[in-house]
Every structure is written in C-alpha cells, then in structure tokens.
Design a protein around this nucleic acid. Sequence first.
DNA 1: TTGTACGCGTTATCAT
DNA 2: ATGATAACGCGTACAA
Lengths: 335, 335
Amino acid sequence: MKDFVSAQEVAEKAGVSRSAVSRAFTPGASVSAKTRRRVMDAAEALGYHVNHLARGLMTNESGIVCLIVSELGTPFRSSLIRAITQQLQNSGKIAMLINTDRSDGSVDRALRQAIHYRADASIILSGLPDKSITQLCLRNGQRLVLINRDDDQPGPLRINIDDREAASRILTAFMRAGCQQLAFANSEVGTPSLMARERGFVAAAAALGIEVTVERHGSTGYEAGKVVAQRLLTRTKRPDAIFCANDLLACGVMDAARHQFKISVPDQLCIAGFDDIEQASWSSYELTTFAQPVETVAREAVAFLASPALQEDAGEVRSLKLHAELVWRGSIRGG
Amino acid sequence: MKDFVSAQEVAEKAGVSRSAVSRAFTPGASVSAKTRRRVMDAAEALGYHVNHLARGLMTNESGIVCLIVSELGTPFRSSLIRAITQQLQNSGKIAMLINTDRSDGSVDRALRQAIHYRADASIILSGLPDKSITQLCLRNGQRLVLINRDDDQPGPLRINIDDREAASRILTAFMRAGCQQLAFANSEVGTPSLMARERGFVAAAAALGIEVTVERHGSTGYEAGKVVAQRLLTRTKRPDAIFCANDLLACGVMDAARHQFKISVPDQLCIAGFDDIEQASWSSYELTTFAQPVETVAREAVAFLASPALQEDAGEVRSLKLHAELVWRGSIRGG
DNA sequence: TTGTACGCGTTATCAT
DNA sequence: ATGATAACGCGTACAA
C-alpha cells in the first residue's frame, strides 16, 4: 500500500527545496510566483496534500474541535450539531464527534480523547465533566464551551438559554387562554436547563398563587411524554395546560391526550414545548414552543474559539444568556 | 498558556528514558512492572496524554475516520451517524464529521480534508465523489465506504439496501389491501436509493399490468411530501395507495391527506414509507415502513475498516446488499 | 529490560 | 526570495 505523498517528494519533482514547498502552501509567505507555480504543478501531479497532523505538531494548532454529545440522534441535538459543524468548517476548523452516554466518566473519557488528538477546543453539549478534567483541558490551552450546562467554573465559555424567563412568558400565555389547572411535564434526567424550565414555571405560577402539578418520567423523549400524560390526565383535577420540558415530551403528551384520552387540543388542553424541533411545525402537532437560537449559539461558540487567546483568562467567567423566541402555533388557545 | 505535557517531561520526572515512557504506553511492549509503574505515576501526576497526532506520524495510522454527510439534521441520517460513531469508538477509532451540501465538489473537498488529516478511512453517506478523488484516496491507502451510494468503482466497500425488493414487497401489501390507484411520492434529488425505490415500485406494478402515478418535488423532506400529496390528491383519478421514497415524505403526505383533504388513512388511502425513523412510530402517524438495518450497516462498515488490508485489493469489488425489514403499522389496511 | 539514535512530515529560524 | 537546519512528540531498530 503506497504511502502518502510528502513535501520532500514534491520538492524533488519541482526542483526546489522542502522549505519552498512549505512556503508555497503557507498563505502570505514570501515566494516568487514562478516557484509557487512549479511547486503547485508538481503537487497536483503527485497528489500532494499538506499533512495537518505534522503541521499541528509544529504550530500547536491542530484545527480540530471536539463535539461531545449524547443522544445525538435526537432532533434538537442533531440540528445543533449541524449548525456547529457548518460554522466550524466556515472557520477552517474541523469537528471531531464523540458520543457519550449517561454513564459515569463518559464525558471525562471524551475530553481525554480531545487531549489525545490535541484538539484546539471542545464543545460540550451533554453531561458535565469533572472539575479536574476541565482544569486539565484549560491548563493544556484547550478552550472549552459549555452549551446549556450549568457550571460555575471559571475558564470555559458558557452559553445558556434564559429558561426561567421563557417559563414565565408561557405561564402568561396559559393564563390569557384561561387555563386553571397547570402542569409541568419533565423527565427524570435532571439536566440543568430542563430543571430551570420546571423551576421557572413553578415559581412564576407560585408568584400568582397558583400551584403546578409536576410529573417526571424516564428520559426526555416521546415515550416518556406519553407516560407523563397518562399520569397527568388521569388525575381527579385534570390539567388544562401542560408545559413540557422539551418538544419530544410535548409530542408524546399531545398524542396521548388526543388519541388515548380523546381530549381536544387546544380546546380542552393547552400544550407548550421547548426547542422548536422540526416536528413541532408538522400539521399533526402545530406545537407552540420556544425556538432556541441554534445559529446564534453555533456562531458565538465558534467565534469564541477563533478569538485570540486573552492572556491568563483562566480567571474570567464568560457567560452568554440567550433569548428563546416564542413560536406561536395552534396548541394554545387565543394568540 | 502552558503547553501540553510531553513524554520527555514524564521521563525526567520518572527518572527513566523517554523510550521507556513510550513503551509503558504501548500495549505488549517489554517493560518491567516497576518501570511501568513509575512512568504511569509520573504521567498521572503531570497529566500526560499520548499525542495521537505525533503517533500517527510514526505509525501511519491516525485512528481518524471521516464521516461525510449532508443534511445531518435529518432523523435517519442522525441515527445512522449515532450508530457509526458508537461503533467507531468501540473499535478505538474516532470520527471526524464533515458536512456537505449539494454544491458541486462539496464531497471532493470533504475527502481532501480527510487526506489532510490522514484519516484511515472515509465513510460517505451523501453525494458521490469524483472518480479521481476516489482513486487518490485509495492510492493513499485510505479505505472508503459508500453507504446507499451507487457506484461501480472498484476499491471501496459499498453497503446498500435492497430497495427494489422492498418496493415489490410493499406493492404486494397494497394489492392485498385492495388498492387500485397506485402512486409513488419522490423528491427531485434523484439519489440512487430513492430512484431504486421508485423504479422498483413502478416495475413491479408494471409486471402486474398496473400503472403508477409518479410525482416528484423539492428535497426529500416533510414539506415536499405535502406538496406532492397536494398534486396527487387533486387528480381526477385519486390514488388510494402512495408509496413514499422515505418517511419524511410519508409524514408530509399523510398530514396533507388527513388535515387538508380530510381523507382517512388507511380507510381511503394507504401509505407506506422508508427508513423507519422514530416519528414513524408516533401515534399520529403509525406509519407502515421499511426499517433500514442501521446497526448492521454501522457494524459492517466499521468491521471493514478494522479488517487487515488485503494486498492489492484495489481491484476487488466489495458490495453488501442488506435486507430492509417491513415494519407493519396502521397506515395500510389489513395486515 | 533499558537506553541511544534516528526518522516520520511539517513549520520556524537563520543564513545567504 | 531561497535553502539548510533545528525542532515538534512520538515509535522503534539497534546496541548494551
């Protein structure tokens, strides 16, 4: 099996030195047009491609950014990954994808991989790394971005959605629709953002002297939504408004309500979700929900990676709180 | 900003030679337990991690596998990516993710990136690379896997689903349900697998002397399904059976039929899809569809990468044709 | 078993 | 503008 072509071979074929080849491929280096031309021709003929691994060895910049994520098959996650990889490519970086599960140390192992491959940065979409690992990454000059994670360690950039504010806004919408029995559908996962939505909703209701029935089950998916709906809709005081921690839960809740309990949405029951996944706009759901500013999240994350390293910024706490836009559809009365 | 820890530093701290450190991290190397212990302790204390980039420089194995894919936010694609990344990680490899679009040369650029990073292999889920690029990859010892692509170049492993056979199976199901007016819903994308389903369906029907109405529109998504349905269901001879090129189209078709045309599924109209995405099982759809053996695809792809390089295998044509399982739900009468 | 010396492909530095 | 040489961090043949 033939090896990759090296700059050495190109140099020989072009009749120049290795350094000339290197310069020809370095933007803004001082090479004569003639030399550059001869090098490029030879490179093309031989099928030469700069070895980024070796380059990274010298420059200490691999161009690699690690995406650490669990449940990557989920609509919201995959759309976020799409946006981020796209932005990364536009910035000349490349994404490494590492799948994590809920097991202990899964994220830590992923970050170790990031270090192994000398990733310039890691973007964590799921789970939370151990403090020691975070420090290890930062100490090695690796930038860190935490998306929708709740962590108070200094160093990483944290990008969050203002979940509490959104929760209080949806409460207002429910009240305006004349809802009386409020409920919140959640999973047992307990992710910070999911919990913030729950707490924000409960708190906002409490401020109005209203109690909220909270039900949690399983992971944050469609099936869990069905189970939660089953529990909520068989209660003696049946809810007429359910705020769901995310759209998948909401779809499950809505389907259970309609097909299993023959409850009309939004006439008898108002439902709201979170994320604005594609399915939320499908005719069968027409789900009123909050759109996370996916593109903005991706842009900010990548911009942070590209920004010049402020010296000794390890002490600074960078945090971004983004606004979720309420997308009004048909699952809440009025509007 | 501090640099990464090198084997040199570990060696000094442990009071051994640098090669001893290297050996301590090389499985099956000859190191005394005592030395290994001292090295490991020092490494742990310093936070040392082997530099895979430099290692790849020596061994000519980066451990990197490129995943080249478009429309990564789509349910089926993302589930496939999930399965593959999982399998790769289990094999000690790591995935690089490259997003492509439909523009010319997008896949070629992605493969060039794969070469830049000296990926051991590339798995192509979307588009089709130029023959010259394919040859370049193979010549450089990079393994290639084409999933659901139609390509007759020798060298790469091709994994396909038997679309034609599936299409003829679903025709049988339609006939058994007593359907008379057959239609096929497709996009204008013209991907080999999509076209194989269309042609297979049309051909199987023709063999029975039945004509199929084919309608194509836009990209292979939900909205396109709605448009296609609109066209099909306003025809004078309205179809009572629609086979859709994939589940997203099918969901769009079904929603349009029910909500827009007040047509009952499956009583007045039978619908089938392809892929068995999660949404197909949701109560609002209960879509009868074909499940692609995602796990098997991923396993076979990764197994091929891990298999020892047969000498001069460039001439051999490796091809896998997998069976799609018919998942029977409620969108076709009978069953 | 352990250490020395070299090479992997690249960029950076320093002459010229 | 160009070429020679060092250095990056690692694996390994070879010698001890």
